[in-house]
Design a binder for these strands. Structure first.
Lengths: 143, 143
DNA sequence: CCATGTCGTTGGTGTCACCAACAATATCAG
DNA sequence: CTGATATTGTTGGTGACACCAACGACATGG
Protein backbone atom coordinates (compact mmCIF):
# COMPACT_ATOMS: atom_id res chain seq x y z
CA UNK A 1 0.00 0.00 0.00
CA UNK A 2 0.94 3.63 -0.02
CA UNK A 3 3.83 4.47 2.27
CA UNK A 4 2.65 8.05 2.49
CA UNK A 5 -0.63 7.00 3.99
CA UNK A 6 0.58 4.20 6.19
CA UNK A 7 1.62 6.64 8.90
CA UNK A 8 -1.54 8.71 8.79
CA UNK A 9 -4.04 8.09 11.53
CA UNK A 10 -6.94 9.16 9.35
CA UNK A 11 -5.91 6.66 6.73
CA UNK A 12 -5.58 3.79 9.17
CA UNK A 13 -8.98 4.62 10.56
CA UNK A 14 -10.30 4.63 7.05
CA UNK A 15 -8.86 1.17 6.44
CA UNK A 16 -10.30 -0.12 9.68
CA UNK A 17 -13.64 1.36 8.81
CA UNK A 18 -13.46 -0.14 5.36
CA UNK A 19 -12.97 -3.56 6.90
CA UNK A 20 -15.74 -2.91 9.37
CA UNK A 21 -17.98 -1.73 6.58
CA UNK A 22 -17.31 -4.81 4.50
CA UNK A 23 -18.08 -7.16 7.37
CA UNK A 24 -21.15 -5.18 8.37
CA UNK A 25 -22.71 -4.78 4.97
CA UNK A 26 -22.12 -8.43 4.15
CA UNK A 27 -23.63 -9.51 7.43
CA UNK A 28 -26.59 -7.16 7.16
CA UNK A 29 -27.18 -8.05 3.55
CA UNK A 30 -27.18 -11.73 4.42
CA UNK A 31 -29.55 -10.97 7.26
CA UNK A 32 -31.77 -8.99 4.90
CA UNK A 33 -31.41 -5.70 6.74
CA UNK A 34 -29.48 -2.44 6.80
CA UNK A 35 -27.48 -0.57 9.40
CA UNK A 36 -30.03 2.24 9.32
CA UNK A 37 -32.77 -0.20 10.20
CA UNK A 38 -30.84 -1.61 13.10
CA UNK A 39 -30.07 1.81 14.46
CA UNK A 40 -33.69 2.86 14.41
CA UNK A 41 -34.89 -0.35 16.01
CA UNK A 42 -32.22 0.07 18.69
CA UNK A 43 -33.31 3.64 19.35
CA UNK A 44 -36.92 2.57 19.78
CA UNK A 45 -36.02 -0.30 22.07
CA UNK A 46 -33.89 1.96 24.19
CA UNK A 47 -36.20 4.93 24.52
CA UNK A 48 -39.64 3.52 23.90
CA UNK A 49 -42.06 5.06 21.41
CA UNK A 50 -40.63 8.12 19.71
CA UNK A 51 -41.54 10.60 17.06
CA UNK A 52 -39.63 10.15 13.84
CA UNK A 53 -37.54 13.23 14.48
CA UNK A 54 -36.63 12.03 17.96
CA UNK A 55 -35.71 8.61 16.65
CA UNK A 56 -33.54 10.29 14.06
CA UNK A 57 -31.72 12.43 16.58
CA UNK A 58 -31.14 9.51 18.89
CA UNK A 59 -29.81 7.26 16.17
CA UNK A 60 -27.94 9.98 14.31
CA UNK A 61 -29.96 9.70 11.12
CA UNK A 62 -31.43 12.55 9.13
CA UNK A 63 -35.19 13.06 9.34
CA UNK A 64 -35.63 12.42 5.66
CA UNK A 65 -33.71 9.15 5.80
CA UNK A 66 -35.74 8.07 8.81
CA UNK A 67 -38.89 8.47 6.75
CA UNK A 68 -37.56 6.18 4.05
CA UNK A 69 -36.26 3.57 6.46
CA UNK A 70 -39.49 3.52 8.43
CA UNK A 71 -41.42 2.82 5.28
CA UNK A 72 -39.51 -0.45 4.93
CA UNK A 73 -39.64 -1.25 8.65
CA UNK A 74 -43.36 -0.56 8.73
CA UNK A 75 -44.01 -2.76 5.76
CA UNK A 76 -41.95 -5.55 7.29
CA UNK A 77 -44.09 -5.27 10.39
CA UNK A 78 -41.21 -4.29 12.66
CA UNK A 79 -42.61 -0.87 13.55
CA UNK A 80 -45.97 0.83 13.69
CA UNK A 81 -46.81 4.48 13.26
CA UNK A 82 -49.80 6.28 14.67
CA UNK A 83 -50.58 9.95 14.89
CA UNK A 84 -49.28 11.46 18.12
CA UNK A 85 -52.18 11.93 20.55
CA UNK A 86 -51.26 15.44 21.65
CA UNK A 87 -49.15 16.77 18.79
CA UNK A 88 -50.65 16.72 15.36
CA UNK A 89 -47.32 17.12 13.65
CA UNK A 90 -45.69 14.03 15.05
CA UNK A 91 -46.08 10.37 14.33
CA UNK A 92 -45.47 8.04 17.21
CA UNK A 93 -43.29 5.14 16.19
CA UNK A 94 -43.28 2.01 18.32
CA UNK A 95 -41.64 -1.37 18.09
CA UNK A 96 -43.84 -4.37 17.41
CA UNK A 97 -43.17 -7.74 18.97
CA UNK A 98 -41.82 -8.85 15.63
CA UNK A 99 -39.56 -5.79 15.57
CA UNK A 100 -38.20 -6.71 18.96
CA UNK A 101 -37.38 -10.17 17.69
CA UNK A 102 -35.77 -8.68 14.63
CA UNK A 103 -33.60 -6.47 16.80
CA UNK A 104 -32.52 -9.48 18.85
CA UNK A 105 -31.72 -11.36 15.68
CA UNK A 106 -29.66 -8.49 14.32
CA UNK A 107 -27.92 -8.26 17.66
CA UNK A 108 -26.51 -11.73 17.27
CA UNK A 109 -25.45 -10.91 13.74
CA UNK A 110 -23.72 -7.77 14.98
CA UNK A 111 -22.08 -9.59 17.83
CA UNK A 112 -20.65 -12.08 15.41
CA UNK A 113 -19.25 -9.27 13.31
CA UNK A 114 -17.62 -7.75 16.40
CA UNK A 115 -15.72 -10.90 17.23
CA UNK A 116 -14.51 -11.26 13.67
CA UNK A 117 -13.57 -7.59 13.52
CA UNK A 118 -11.65 -7.72 16.80
CA UNK A 119 -10.07 -11.09 16.08
CA UNK A 120 -6.55 -9.65 15.62
CA UNK A 121 -6.59 -8.22 19.17
CA UNK A 122 -6.33 -10.01 22.49
CA UNK A 123 -8.42 -9.08 25.50
CA UNK A 124 -6.25 -6.30 26.91
CA UNK A 125 -5.63 -4.87 23.47
CA UNK A 126 -9.37 -4.69 22.93
CA UNK A 127 -9.69 -2.80 26.17
CA UNK A 128 -7.09 -0.29 25.05
CA UNK A 129 -8.64 -0.05 21.63
CA UNK A 130 -12.03 0.81 23.06
CA UNK A 131 -10.76 3.54 25.35
CA UNK A 132 -8.57 5.11 22.69
CA UNK A 133 -11.14 5.09 19.92
CA UNK A 134 -13.75 6.36 22.30
CA UNK A 135 -11.56 9.32 23.17
CA UNK A 136 -11.26 10.20 19.52
CA UNK A 137 -14.86 9.51 18.65
CA UNK A 138 -16.20 11.52 21.56
CA UNK A 139 -14.35 14.59 20.39
CA UNK A 140 -16.97 16.57 18.52
CA UNK A 141 -19.95 14.79 20.06
CA UNK A 142 -18.83 14.47 23.68
CA UNK A 143 -22.02 14.52 25.72
CA UNK B 1 -26.23 8.23 21.90
CA UNK B 2 -27.36 4.68 21.56
CA UNK B 3 -26.33 2.48 24.44
CA UNK B 4 -26.56 -0.56 22.24
CA UNK B 5 -23.92 0.79 19.90
CA UNK B 6 -21.64 2.39 22.41
CA UNK B 7 -20.00 -0.94 23.18
CA UNK B 8 -19.60 -2.03 19.58
CA UNK B 9 -16.17 -1.71 18.10
CA UNK B 10 -17.52 -1.30 14.59
CA UNK B 11 -19.68 1.58 15.76
CA UNK B 12 -16.83 3.36 17.51
CA UNK B 13 -14.71 2.98 14.43
CA UNK B 14 -17.54 4.39 12.43
CA UNK B 15 -17.73 7.42 14.71
CA UNK B 16 -13.99 7.93 14.52
CA UNK B 17 -14.11 7.63 10.78
CA UNK B 18 -16.98 10.07 10.63
CA UNK B 19 -14.89 12.61 12.49
CA UNK B 20 -11.91 11.87 10.30
CA UNK B 21 -14.07 12.21 7.23
CA UNK B 22 -15.46 15.54 8.35
CA UNK B 23 -12.02 16.97 9.02
CA UNK B 24 -10.62 15.54 5.79
CA UNK B 25 -13.36 16.64 3.47
CA UNK B 26 -13.41 20.11 4.96
CA UNK B 27 -9.66 20.40 4.62
CA UNK B 28 -9.57 19.01 1.09
CA UNK B 29 -12.50 21.13 0.02
CA UNK B 30 -10.77 24.21 1.35
CA UNK B 31 -7.62 23.14 -0.45
CA UNK B 32 -9.61 22.58 -3.64
CA UNK B 33 -8.83 18.89 -3.92
CA UNK B 34 -10.17 15.45 -3.14
CA UNK B 35 -8.88 12.42 -1.26
CA UNK B 36 -8.86 10.42 -4.51
CA UNK B 37 -6.60 13.00 -6.10
CA UNK B 38 -4.20 12.94 -3.21
CA UNK B 39 -4.02 9.16 -3.25
CA UNK B 40 -3.23 9.04 -6.93
CA UNK B 41 -0.58 11.72 -6.68
CA UNK B 42 0.93 9.86 -3.74
CA UNK B 43 0.99 6.61 -5.69
CA UNK B 44 2.77 8.26 -8.60
CA UNK B 45 5.30 9.94 -6.37
CA UNK B 46 6.05 6.70 -4.61
CA UNK B 47 6.31 4.38 -7.59
CA UNK B 48 7.17 6.64 -10.49
CA UNK B 49 5.26 6.57 -13.77
CA UNK B 50 2.48 4.01 -13.77
CA UNK B 51 -0.29 2.79 -15.97
CA UNK B 52 -3.72 3.83 -14.79
CA UNK B 53 -4.59 0.34 -13.66
CA UNK B 54 -1.36 0.09 -11.67
CA UNK B 55 -1.97 3.46 -10.08
CA UNK B 56 -5.43 2.29 -9.17
CA UNK B 57 -4.24 -0.92 -7.58
CA UNK B 58 -1.55 0.88 -5.61
CA UNK B 59 -3.90 3.54 -4.31
CA UNK B 60 -6.84 1.22 -3.84
CA UNK B 61 -9.08 2.98 -6.34
CA UNK B 62 -11.16 1.36 -9.03
CA UNK B 63 -9.93 1.65 -12.63
CA UNK B 64 -12.99 3.55 -13.66
CA UNK B 65 -12.65 6.06 -10.86
CA UNK B 66 -8.99 6.52 -11.72
CA UNK B 67 -10.01 7.53 -15.21
CA UNK B 68 -12.33 10.21 -13.89
CA UNK B 69 -9.86 11.53 -11.32
CA UNK B 70 -7.06 11.66 -13.87
CA UNK B 71 -9.17 13.77 -16.14
CA UNK B 72 -9.26 16.44 -13.45
CA UNK B 73 -5.62 15.99 -12.48
CA UNK B 74 -4.57 16.18 -16.09
CA UNK B 75 -6.53 19.34 -16.72
CA UNK B 76 -5.07 20.92 -13.59
CA UNK B 77 -1.63 20.13 -14.96
CA UNK B 78 -0.69 17.83 -12.08
CA UNK B 79 -0.30 14.73 -14.22
CA UNK B 80 0.47 13.85 -17.82
CA UNK B 81 -0.59 10.82 -19.82
CA UNK B 82 1.16 9.36 -22.80
CA UNK B 83 0.70 6.08 -24.60
CA UNK B 84 2.86 3.34 -23.13
CA UNK B 85 5.87 2.72 -25.37
CA UNK B 86 5.70 -1.07 -25.32
CA UNK B 87 2.09 -1.81 -24.45
CA UNK B 88 -0.58 -0.29 -26.63
CA UNK B 89 -3.30 -0.84 -24.07
CA UNK B 90 -1.74 1.21 -21.33
CA UNK B 91 -1.32 4.89 -20.74
CA UNK B 92 1.70 5.96 -18.79
CA UNK B 93 0.84 8.49 -16.10
CA UNK B 94 3.53 10.67 -14.64
CA UNK B 95 3.67 13.48 -12.12
CA UNK B 96 4.48 16.94 -13.38
CA UNK B 97 6.56 19.38 -11.37
CA UNK B 98 3.36 21.19 -10.57
CA UNK B 99 1.82 17.92 -9.42
CA UNK B 100 4.73 17.35 -7.10
CA UNK B 101 4.18 20.77 -5.58
CA UNK B 102 0.49 20.04 -5.25
CA UNK B 103 1.26 16.82 -3.42
CA UNK B 104 3.55 18.67 -1.03
CA UNK B 105 0.87 21.25 -0.44
CA UNK B 106 -1.75 18.60 0.29
CA UNK B 107 0.74 16.91 2.59
CA UNK B 108 0.81 19.92 4.86
CA UNK B 109 -2.96 20.06 4.80
CA UNK B 110 -3.15 16.40 5.72
CA UNK B 111 -0.58 16.77 8.45
CA UNK B 112 -2.62 19.53 9.99
CA UNK B 113 -5.67 17.29 9.95
CA UNK B 114 -3.71 14.53 11.69
CA UNK B 115 -2.77 16.72 14.61
CA UNK B 116 -6.34 17.89 15.04
CA UNK B 117 -7.65 14.36 14.72
CA UNK B 118 -5.21 12.98 17.28
CA UNK B 119 -5.56 15.93 19.64
CA UNK B 120 -7.42 13.93 22.33
CA UNK B 121 -4.50 11.49 22.65
CA UNK B 122 -1.10 12.02 24.23
CA UNK B 123 2.10 10.71 22.71
CA UNK B 124 2.07 7.21 24.16
CA UNK B 125 -1.63 6.82 23.47
CA UNK B 126 -1.02 7.71 19.86
CA UNK B 127 1.63 5.04 19.72
CA UNK B 128 -0.80 2.47 21.06
CA UNK B 129 -3.53 3.69 18.76
CA UNK B 130 -1.36 3.24 15.70
CA UNK B 131 -0.30 -0.30 16.54
CA UNK B 132 -3.81 -1.40 17.44
CA UNK B 133 -5.53 0.10 14.45
CA UNK B 134 -2.82 -1.21 12.18
CA UNK B 135 -3.41 -4.72 13.46
CA UNK B 136 -7.07 -4.43 12.62
CA UNK B 137 -6.59 -2.66 9.32
CA UNK B 138 -3.98 -5.12 8.10
CA UNK B 139 -6.34 -8.01 8.59
CA UNK B 140 -7.78 -8.60 5.15
CA UNK B 141 -5.04 -6.74 3.29
CA UNK B 142 -1.94 -7.91 5.18
CA UNK B 143 0.54 -7.92 2.35
C1' DC C 1 -53.31 36.62 16.49
C1' DC C 2 -48.83 36.58 14.57
C1' DA C 3 -44.12 35.13 14.33
C1' DT C 4 -41.34 31.43 14.81
C1' DG C 5 -40.29 26.85 14.80
C1' DT C 6 -40.89 21.85 14.47
C1' DC C 7 -42.83 17.76 12.10
C1' DG C 8 -42.96 14.44 8.27
C1' DT C 9 -42.26 14.23 3.46
C1' DT C 10 -40.38 14.79 -1.15
C1' DG C 11 -36.78 15.43 -4.01
C1' DG C 12 -32.78 16.55 -4.63
C1' DT C 13 -26.85 16.67 -4.01
C1' DG C 14 -22.20 14.70 -3.66
C1' DT C 15 -18.83 11.24 -2.45
C1' DC C 16 -17.23 6.81 -2.24
C1' DA C 17 -17.00 2.19 -3.69
C1' DC C 18 -18.30 -0.96 -6.85
C1' DC C 19 -19.75 -3.65 -11.28
C1' DA C 20 -20.70 -4.72 -16.26
C1' DA C 21 -19.64 -4.26 -20.80
C1' DC C 22 -16.96 -2.69 -24.67
C1' DA C 23 -13.16 -2.21 -28.15
C1' DA C 24 -8.34 -2.34 -28.41
C1' DT C 25 -4.35 -4.73 -27.42
C1' DA C 26 -1.18 -8.60 -25.23
C1' DT C 27 -0.16 -12.99 -24.19
C1' DC C 28 -0.27 -17.80 -23.94
C1' DA C 29 -1.41 -22.61 -25.67
C1' DG C 30 -1.36 -25.59 -29.13
C1' DC D 1 0.49 -18.71 -36.88
C1' DT D 2 -3.99 -19.02 -34.69
C1' DG D 3 -7.40 -19.07 -31.40
C1' DA D 4 -8.60 -18.56 -26.57
C1' DT D 5 -7.93 -15.77 -22.62
C1' DA D 6 -6.69 -11.75 -20.10
C1' DT D 7 -5.74 -6.86 -19.38
C1' DT D 8 -6.35 -1.80 -20.27
C1' DG D 9 -8.94 2.39 -20.45
C1' DT D 10 -13.44 4.05 -20.85
C1' DT D 11 -18.40 4.68 -20.33
C1' DG D 12 -22.32 4.24 -17.86
C1' DG D 13 -24.40 2.56 -14.64
C1' DT D 14 -25.70 0.89 -9.11
C1' DG D 15 -26.26 1.46 -4.18
C1' DA D 16 -25.36 3.12 0.45
C1' DC D 17 -24.60 6.93 3.24
C1' DA D 18 -24.87 11.53 4.69
C1' DC D 19 -26.53 15.72 3.80
C1' DC D 20 -29.66 19.97 2.41
C1' DA D 21 -33.77 22.80 0.83
C1' DA D 22 -38.40 23.47 0.66
C1' DC D 23 -43.18 22.42 1.48
C1' DG D 24 -47.74 22.21 4.05
C1' DA D 25 -49.42 20.98 8.45
C1' DC D 26 -49.39 21.95 13.00
C1' DA D 27 -47.64 24.05 17.93
C1' DT D 28 -46.26 27.40 20.76
C1' DG D 29 -44.65 31.82 22.72
C1' DG D 30 -45.04 36.53 22.63
Amino acid sequence: MLKRLHGRATWLVNLAQSRSHTLLSEAFAEAGSRPYHYRILAALEQAGPLSQAEAGRLSGIDRSDVTVALEALDQAGFTERQPHPSDGRKKLVRLTASGRRELARLDTVLEDVQTRFLAPLNASERQQFFTLVRKIADEGAPE
